[in-house]
Design a protein around this nucleic acid. Structure first.
Length: 730
RNA sequence: GCGCCCAUAGCUCAGUUGGUUAGAGCGCUACAUUGACAUUGUAGAGGUCAGAGGUUCAAGUCCUCUUGGGCGCACCA
């Protein structure tokens, strides 16, 4: 026999084992050709950088399920891939180029996109290596990228389908514009941050009868109405009256309207309505038929509609206007308030709501189906409480702005006759013959310059990765996928949209179960952040304690939808556990094979099979066999119910304390007994229990269990080449 | 404003159809250990399960309220 090393040396062993697995083809579902499919499509990590510990957490959960089902004999497929992450990646590469003194606009679109591809090749490769280090048993031959050829054609197909069904439209609507990113973003991509602000009370001019209150005076150049609550006695007589106003030279007709959205208690109870620069005012303008005046442009500067303020940045215009209001004695007072500032989820700069010509997806019809799929139980969300969050979002859904003024992404498959830009600035009522939607534009048509929201392509992920829209054998066999394992923070961005797109485009649910994990926090339960300096790099931890230890630490003690606290001491504890597995195995190996080992014989007890003689069982034997029997069913039942922590905890307790501390201690006497039969029986039990326990633990700690398995193969007959492809013990 | 989660040992957390004496890891105390493993073992201390009320033969678990902490959605003129 080989000599078992004294300690489990993860560093030398893990990557070698992984290479071996990958080369052997054990990650392919074809190793269980007759098994029923079990499929997980990885949530594709962004190509923006390297993976953090949250990725390690998700990947571990996914890989655990895949390995368990592979052992059960299912055709288990773990589809790897990455997301091009439009806005995020474009920003990162732009920043890098600027550092090198290169301006994106001088470079031009084509060259810039080339630069992003270079970035993708470099960082994408690193990410894939990280996934391997975590032990992800993905079928790498099926790896996909959201911007690869197949997925691009899926995106075009999806767009055309939705367009033809009248579920995609173009129009000029108020959108969330990020002046820094230079693009529109979706409602869901807007975050809020409380800030201190000044609330200014003033009149447009001396003749106007109502004082309004606002935190953004500069937008008031675009006011076309003042809204009051219909029940407000103070303004009752003014409702429906119109006034000619002059705000520092900008003349408007302002109508007083009544709208229930107005809070009587806030400010003066009268709101200056700025249809072009406030979401709610836009809606009021639609309801009341008010004109819309755009006074802020895409660069965050005042337009000609702001008179002499034209060209000023928003904040500058605000200062100057307040000065004017003071000097003209129009400012009644200013107060300090706290309000919420809308910021961009990517760059955190202030969002400027403004009207813009964009593409939208009609969400209501899609949302109904998505709701029904979960209501009926066809799709199960774990933990169940997130169903409520999901329904709430779907019930209040608004149309989804899908065009982005970026270069990196799926270019919108729409072509215009003669010019793309001309049509964009003209009315949304374009002639049908001037527009072409699809793959083969007629001569002289120019493609829309915008790209699609990155979530449009990720929304297709569960089926586009399997070959859709072609009816490939993979699509036939593996779709719908089985489990969607991802973080609860992207339930709207991603999960809900996959369900909507899947139902609409394939007519089927994209997956049966949604398992949502929480955030990984530090030992004191704080969010990990660079500024706190408490960020844990999974690769460092893996180098120090081993992948298996990290995997155990992430899974045991964590429950779905709940954040999990992980620090080095926890990981260290599970490193000790992996060493325990190694050493207990070493004990078994040494004791079982001591004496002369002939082929087919295990030590001097002449073991030629693993049949246990029931009549010879000692109380210790009976106890451990009982526990062993029950741990097998408990672990399977927990994993089947997605209770990964419980199964892991029980395995830990069983293996360390029942098997090592109790049974192995007991065998020390039994193995030195005079009766060869008893010694042989004990050895058989040791082998049987160790062998099966390794399989039970393999989904959690894949490396050490296979390393031991390889040692066992030296003296135990009939073991599979790798524990990965052995069978779950019944 | 609407909704969700959390509160269990010093710390971080499990405890999923309500059911013996409420568990784990880390930490702590004492002892052991040339032994498969000090990346160890044995023993132990430590909890009115946030508070109050209710349902029940039985409540950490279900219901109502209160307090404290966190989060989501909407609004934010």
């Amino acid at each position: 026999m080989k000599t078992f090393k004294k300690n489990w040396e993860h560093f030398e062993t893990e990557s070698k084992l992984y290479d071996l697995w990958e080369k052997s083809g054990y990650f392919k579902p074809e190793i269980n050709p007759d098994g029923k499919p079990f499929v997980i499509a990885i949530p594709p990590p962004n190509v923006t950088g390297k993976l953090h510990i949250g990725h390690a957490y998700g990947t571990t959960l996914q890989d655990l399920m895949i390995r368990y089902h592979r052992l059960l004999g299912d055709a288990s497929l773990y589809i790897p891939g990455m997301d091009h992450a439009g806005i995020a990646t474009q920003t990162v590469v732009d920043k890098k180029l600027r550092k090198d003194g290169i301006n994106k606009n001088e470079l031009g679109r084509e060259k810039f996109v080339e630069e992003v591809w270079k970035w993708k090749e470099e960082y994408g490769g690193k990410i894939l290596e990280q996934l391997r280090a975590i032990g992800a048993s993905c079928d790498w031959d099926r790896e996909r990228f959201t911007l690869d050829e197949g997925l691009s054609s899926a995106v075009r197909e999806a767009f055309v389908h939705l367009y033809k069904k009248d579920l995609i439209y173009r129009g000029e609507y108020i959108v969330n514009w990020c002046p820094k990113c230079g693009t529109a973003i979706a409602d869901d991509e807007v975050e809020h941050e409380t800030q201190k602000a000044k609330l200014y009370y003033f009149k447009y001019d001396k003749n106007f009868p109502i004082t309004i209150a606002t935190t953004r005076p500069e937008t008031k150049f675009g006011d076309t109405a003042v809204a009051v609550n219909p029940g407000d006695e103070r303004y009752k007589e003014l409702i429906d009256k119109e006034f000619e106003t002059d705000l520092d030279g900008v003349k408007r007709t302002i109508k007083v309207i009544a709208d229930r959205a107005v809070d009587k208690e806030f400010g003066t109870g009268a709101v200056g309505v700025t249809p072009s620069h406030s979401m709610i005012d836009w809606k009021m303008a639609e309801d009341h038929g008010l004109p819309k005046v755009k006074v802020i442009n895409e660069y965050g500067k005042m337009t000609a509609e702001a008179g002499k303020y034209e060209g000023m940045k928003v904040l500058e215009a605000r200062e100057k206007l307040v000065e004017y209001l003071k000097s003209a004695d129009l400012l009644e007072k200013e107060t300090d308030i706290e309000n919420n500032l809308s910021i961009c989820y990517r760059c955190s700069s202030a969002i400027e709501p403004l009207p813009s010509l964009q593409w939208f997806v009609k969400m209501k019809p899609l949302a109904e189906k998505a709701k029904a799929a979960v209501k009926s139980g066809e799709i199960e969300i774990i933990p169940k409480r997130f169903e409520k969050v999901y329904f709430h979002w779907l019930d209040n859904i608004r149309d989804w702005c899908i065009s982005r003024q970026l270069w990196w992404g799926h270019r919108i498959p729409v072509y215009y006759r003669n010019s793309s830009d001309k049509l964009k600035v003209e009315s949304q009522k374009f002639n049908e013959e001037d527009i072409y939607v699809g793959d083969n534009p007629p001569e002289g048509y120019i493609q829309d310059s915008d790209v699609l929201d990155t979530w449009f392509s990720s929304g297709l992920w569960p089926f586009s990765t399997l070959g859709w829209p072609d009816e490939t054998p993979d699509f036939e066999k593996f779709y719908p996928t089985t489990v969607m394992e991802t973080g609860y923070d992207i339930i709207f961005f991603w999960v809900a949209r996959m369900i909507m797109m899947g139902l609409e485009l394939t007519g089927k649910i994209p997956f049966k179960t949604v398992y949502l994990h929480g955030l990984v926090r530090d030992e004191q339960n704080r969010k990990m952040s660079k500024s706190l300096g408490n960020v844990l790099d999974p690769l460092d931890l893996i180098a120090k304690y081993g992948t298996d230890a990290l995997r155990m630490a992430l899974i045991v003690g964590s429950t779905p939808g709940q954040d999990v606290a992980v620090g080095e001491s926890k990981i260290k504890g599970y490193r000790n556990f992996t060493n325990k597995i190694w050493n207990a195995s070493r004990f078994v190996s040494l004791r079982v094979t001591d004496g002369d080992l002939q082929s087919g014989e295990l030590g001097e007890a002449k073991i030629t099979d693993l049949n246990i003689d029931e009549k010879l069982l000692t109380p210790a034997d009976k106890k451990i066999l009982d526990s062993h029997k029950s741990i097998k069913s408990k672990v399977a039942s927990h994993i089947d119910k997605f209770q990964f922590s419980l199964a892991g905890e029980e395995l830990y307790e069983y293996f360390w304390h029942e098997f090592c501390d109790e049974y192995i201690e007991a065998t020390k006497d039994q193995l030195s007994a005079d009766s060869y039969q008893l010694v042989a029986n004990t050895k058989k039990i040791l082998i049987k229990i160790l062998k099966e326990s390794l399989v039970l633990m393999h989904p959690y700690v894949p490396f050490v269990t296979d390393a031991v398995w390889q040692e066992l193969r030296e003296f135990v007959p009939g073991l599979a080449d790798s524990i990965m492809i052995s069978n779950w013990p019944k």
